[in-house]
Amino acid sequence: MNKLNNKEKVIELLSRHNPSFNDGFTDRVIDRINSESSYIENTDTDFYSIFRWIAISGVAAIILLLFTVYLTDGTFSSDAIYGILNYSPDEPLLASLDY
């Protein structure tokens, strides 16, 4: 090991070290960026379309519920919406005593 007896030789050896990536590195980077961008765009579109359908279904369900309540009770009061318009709190107690 006569050739490498000082630090300068180690430094010289290191400076000759010139590793490189396999061919097509730039294309691989650009492909990954493009595929990630299209994934994000698709995911955004998917979330938007799912949210839109949930929102439309929700609004339709609420309208249907209000319509049914009005048909049944003829009012939009909170008791009618909760379904307790004709409810008496004593009824269950009396019913259980009768039983």
């Binding site: 590793p19 590195f25 730039t26 980077v29």
Partner: peptide
Amino acid sequence: SYIVRRYEAMIAKITI
């Protein structure tokens, strides 16, 4: 892609 090409060799040396 020109930025990548310009610095590819440097990043290769460091990471490898």
